[in-house]
């Protein structure tokens, strides 16, 4: 029983999906953890990446499709940032507005159909299958790992540059940023554009992985990415940038693994969103629960000590 749950197959596909979805988690790492902005346009932006990728893969080339999707993501991030930095829309509102608008845009990109198929065309994965023939059935995982490794390494490098430092400071202490001759409107703009491009790239890769795109593919994506982010930060900590970025990817893989196990237990597909929500709720409340447990333990110990020294129970 246990062996069938933790089979290599399950692990492999969990890692593949973990790396692909890890790009969204990385996007939220930048917008949420670093810039301290709750960017709710993630769901729509993810679908946008999917839709643009499908359309370009069908009419053009699958590799070109990835870059086209990233460009679309940058545009989406730019609009979200423009609304909040130049037009005074609150950051959460800006995300919701863009997310809503993107629904129509996404339908339009897919030719006003709610889904699209890539079954008959080449994808980066089908191209990679020939290129990575030596890897056997692992070619998809290798491709996904290469993409997330490049994205992660670039992220770590970028956050150490002067522009990256300015973006980090914007989320850490905005007043200090203005006093250091940096325009926070500019750093937010750059940050959200990068974040958008990563989200869309994730959607694009998923579209090619699943050989299809659906208008609802991005629903709940922001929650899932946040869960991955927080699982990673809880388990690996915040000591260094490499560890933080690695933790985000690790969290994403772990999340996919939990989902895969849930599916193995014959949880119906319709219940998956609920399972996701539960995982997210548990992951996010973990630090608070830990703290509470530690506090109760200390209280208990103090009570015992008190009882020992005074020979009677403390009144509660």
């Amino acid at each position: 029983m246990l062996a069938s749950i933790f089979s290599l197959n399950v692990l492999q596909s969990a890692l593949e999906l973990g790396c692909i979805y890890g790009l969204v988690a990385l996007a939220l790492f930048l917008s949420y953890s670093i810039l301290n902005i709750a960017d709710l346009s993630t769901d729509g932006c993810f679908t946008l990446g999917c839709a643009v990728c499908c359309q370009v893969a069908v009419t053009g080339h699958p590799v070109l499709a990835l870059f086209a999707a990233m460009a679309a993501g940058i545009l989406s991030g730019f609009i979200t940032a423009f609304l909040q930095t130049r037009l005074g829309v609150e950051s959460i509102m800006a995300g919701i507005i863009v997310n809503t608008g993107l629904y129509t845009i996404n339908l339009a990109v897919m030719g006003f159909s709610s889904n699209m198929s890539l079954v008959k065309v080449d994808t980066v994965f089908s191209l990679g299958k020939n290129l990575l023939a030596f890897a056997g059935s692992w070619y998809q995982l290798i491709l996904a790992v290469v993409v997330i490794a490049i994205a992660g390494a670039l992220m770590v490098w970028f956050l150490g540059t002067r522009l990256g430092l300015s973006i980090r400071a914007t989320g850490d202490n905005a007043a200090m940023v203005r006093a250091s001759s940096i325009d926070p409107a500019y750093t937010i703009m750059v940050g959200l554009c990068i974040s958008g491009s990563l989200t869309a790239l994730s959607g694009a890769l998923l579209a090619q992985y699943q050989k299809s795109c659906d208008i609802n593919v991005g629903t709940g994506m922001v929650t899932i990415a946040l869960a991955s982010l927080i699982i990673g930060e809880t388990l690996l900590g915040k000591r260094s940038m490499v560890l933080r970025v690695g933790g985000v990817v690790f969290g994403s893989c772990l999340y996919r693994f939990i989902v895969a196990v849930a599916l193995r237990f014959n949880v119906p597909a319709a219940a998956m969103k609920l399972v996701s929500a539960l995982i997210v709720a548990v992951a996010i409340s973990m630090p608070a629960i830990r703290q509470k447990i530690a506090f109760e333990k200390r209280k208990q110990e103090a009570r015992l000590r008190h009882a020992k020294t005074h020979g009677k129970k403390e009144a509660v």
Partner: peptide
């Protein structure tokens, strides 16, 4: 607390100031 970014290192804070 107003003039520095707490989650960044001393070196990184100085690098920001040096942007001037």
């Amino acid at each position: 607390l107003k003039g520095t970014a707490p989650n960044m290192t001393i070196e990184e804070n100085l690098a920001l100031a040096y942007l001037r």
